[in-house]
């Protein structure tokens, strides 16, 4: 009797290969559910902080390294800046998806993304 070209075991093997690859993709998309803060200077990312893992960091950036951004306890905020208006410091602590603060004179922006709860608006007008 001639053996079949592909047996049940072979199909199983193919399925396993597909599952392993699929798991890889899933893992990748899972990582985006983490809450991440990005600190930009002049439009470029200078530091990324994982807020879900409560990463602690002190970031010094800005026009003359005069801006201090602190990340602790799952929150991130402007601690110090040489700007005249201190709008950045008044922005307070950022801790949820979509939170945003900027120091215009020093060209520094903090943006928090990931871990969307599902009911946040697409954008905020101000």
């Amino acid at each position: 009797m001639e053996r079949k070209l592909i047996t049940k075991n072979d199909i199983l093997l193919i399925v396993v290969i597909i599952l392993i690859i699929g798991a890889g993709f899933l893992l990748k998309s899972f990582s985006s559910s983490q809450l991440v803060a990005e600190v930009y200077y002049d439009g470029k990312i200078v530091e990324t902080v994982n807020l879900t893992e409560k990463e602690e960091k002190k970031i010094i950036t800005g026009e003359n390294d005069s801006v201090v951004v602190v990340a602790e306890d799952g929150k991130i905020y402007f601690e110090k800046s040489d700007c005249p208006d201190k709008v950045c410091i008044k922005s307070g602590e950022l801790h949820q998806n979509g939170d945003f603060a900027s120091c215009l004179p020093e060209k520094v922006v903090i943006k928090v993304s990931g871990a969307k709860k599902g009911n946040e608006p697409d954008a905020i007008v101000y």
Binding site: S91, L94, P121, D122, A123, I124, V125, Y126
Partner: peptide, 22 residues
């Protein structure tokens, strides 16, 4: 100021004038 493009149901939050930026 926002430019919203390509969808018919954008949700836009209006900033709380008495609260902070976010």
């Amino acid at each position: 100021s926002l430019c919203l493009y390509g969808k018919n149901d954008f949700t836009v939050g209006v900033r709380n004038p008495l609260g902070d930026v976010n």
